[in-house]
Design a binder for these strands. Structure first.
Lengths: 342, 342
DNA sequence: TTGTAAGCGTTATCAC
DNA sequence: GTGATAACGCTTACAA
């Protein structure tokens, strides 16, 4: 059990002053090659590491990122892990630690982390349209990145998937392949209720863009999760209009499988008799039966962008373009569920 | 943006010395009712919170728990969230923060957290039989709790599910309901390869206990995940012996659904023609079709136990029994997949 | 019951 | 280029 050493121990061993040790570590002052090597050797020998608390106290920076994770609520519990993992890796790459706070603490969690100077910046996942944390976050003395776009961002930095653009490229694809009608199989009611923001961003853009391209678009919503609801929605979609080339647009990744299954059981083979474009991760699209043409919504892209802007705020010496509300674009991957042009 | 106040500000406002403020907060010294109220009022008024770094520096305790999470690897990505959530809640209940470290950092992560005095205790999830982190952990100046039992625990505190006991009660149930042969549908090969510990604990105990009760037990292993493998294993199980009452024991929760489905498609109704006892969470058992009699393996129970011992180590004033290697018992819940006694 | 003051281990401002 | 030394904001003897 290596008794923890201090920078004084290192200084003594290297035969220099304690402050020199500090300067070697921070690099805030030119050090002669020779003494630097001696100090580094001493550090190595003692396996010395700086005391985080002392460092934070003296430097006014904790080198910690606070992450507010929405546990508990049922939705998409699996997609969150890669997100967190990505955040952690990015923090680590900048020699920062990651402090995890569960969202059920609400605004008080934000105040605690800031008040105790526990972190230099925060990321709040799953921001809802009307989120009581946003107003609190805006008053904090540390930068905050929101994942999701609230109705009033208060000048905070937001990162989210670009749902409007996602809708557009999905419809572009269906248009380019000669479809003349599109059925949008919407989201479950409780999601729509909770944070209509991304839902409405998608649906509004879809309607607008379909209109622009002169394609008929019907929105079928809400569509609950589960086989029965999906089947009913599929029936409704297929009844919509007669003949022609029909494309189904499925923005809720949890419904993709059920929709495909419902089509199959009705004798409509996706990619031959009808088209399906899903909004989901590439992994999910690939695993679907059959592999479904999708507009990718990768949380990793979002976390990446979030951490970029975070460290852009934390290390202002850089020259990269300043961020604002960052919408991560989706991209379309063609698989087997869109009919080729006639 | 509330400019952060210090305890001196509080002291000034309350008209007391700075140390008195500290004593009010720590409670390490009797304070007169009157001044205590004045101080508390001042704290409230300034929304004062102690600087975590300064506190850690002076008190030699960071009030942070380090958690090493095994991301990345594919297995059971969904079960980890409740675990982490539970840890976080428990930490919070003791006014501690949670620092997240991804396991891919390996032993260096342990050394960093300890060397920088970033946390007062650590929890390492998913310990494998031969885990290079264990030896390092044993040398650290902070207590470490292992989730899982390595081949050489080095005196560290371990918490895990009691797989041996789980096997026993499962077999007890099948025995009590008049089964005369049991097929154990084992784990996928790569799991067995990586950390045979829990696998072998289960299988060994099962064999031993079946032997003791005089029931024929056949182990079918490995059984990969997925429908095909499960179906093959089911066929093999049903071929095992002729007639009589057969019970299937499924210790890999990922295979439960597939096994039930395979039985159904062979015209064997679980609970009527054949019995199934699964090892999985209650939620999963309840959601199965049909609801499956299960031996519960709740990660929450493990995290709970881990945090209990952790804070028992951190706050030694208590009188609770000292922990060692803690094996959390499973319990059986009867549902619809075990045939009633003849 | 309360106040004074000495650390805790850094960073950063002076001097030299 | 390097060494003293004063913060940083708290906890905790030691006095009173």
């Amino acid at each position: 059990m290596a008794q923890s050493h201090t920078s004084r121990d290192v200084a003594r061993l290297a035969g220099v002053s304690q402050s020199t040790v500090s300067y070697v570590m921070t690099g805030r002052r030119p050090i002669s090659e020779e003494t630097r090597l001696r100090v580094e050797a001493a550090i190595e020998q003692l396996t010395y590491e700086r005391h985080a608390g002392a460092r934070a106290l003296a430097s006014q920076r904790s080198r910690v990122v606070g992450l507010f994770v929405p546990f508990g609520d049922g939705n998409d519990t699996v997609g969150k892990l890669p997100f967190i993992e990505n955040i952690a890796a990015s923090a680590r790459a900048h020699d920062h630690e990651l402090l995890l706070v569960t969202a059920d603490e609400g605004p008080s969690g934000l105040r605690r982390l800031a008040g105790r100077s526990l972190c230099d910046a925060m990321i709040i996942m799953d921001i809802e349209l009307e989120d009581e944390r946003v107003a609190v976050a805006a008053e904090l003395p540390v930068p905050v990145i929101l994942i999701g776009v609230p109705s009033d961002p208060r000048g905070l930095h937001c990162v989210d998937l670009d749902f409007a653009q996602a809708a557009q490229i999905a419809i572009d694809e269906l248009s380019a392949t000669g479809h003349d009608r599109i059925a949008l199989l919407g989201h479950p009611a409780d999601i729509t209720r909770r944070r209509l923001n991304y839902v409405s961003r998608f649906i509004d853009a879809a309607c607008e863009h379909a209109d622009l391209l002169g394609i008929r678009l019907e929105v079928i919503a809400p569509v609950e999760l589960g086989r029965a609801a999906a089947a009913a929605a599929v029936d409704e979609a297929m009844a919509f209009g007669a003949g022609g080339r029909l494309g189904l647009l499925v923005p809720e990744s949890g419904n993709v499988q059920a929709v495909l299954r419902a089509l199959n059981s009705r004798g409509s083979l996706p990619g031959r008799d009808v088209s399906v474009v899903a909004v989901c991760t590439d992994a999910m699209a690939q695993d679907a039966e059959p592999p479904v043409t999708n507009v990718s919504m990768e949380r990793r892209d979002v976390s990446q962008r979030a951490m970029e802007t975070l460290f852009w705020l934390l290390e202002p010496d850089q020259r990269k373009p300043p961020p604002g509300i960052a919408l991560v674009p989706a991209r379309l991957t063609r698989r087997q569920t869109v009919m080729p042009p006639p």
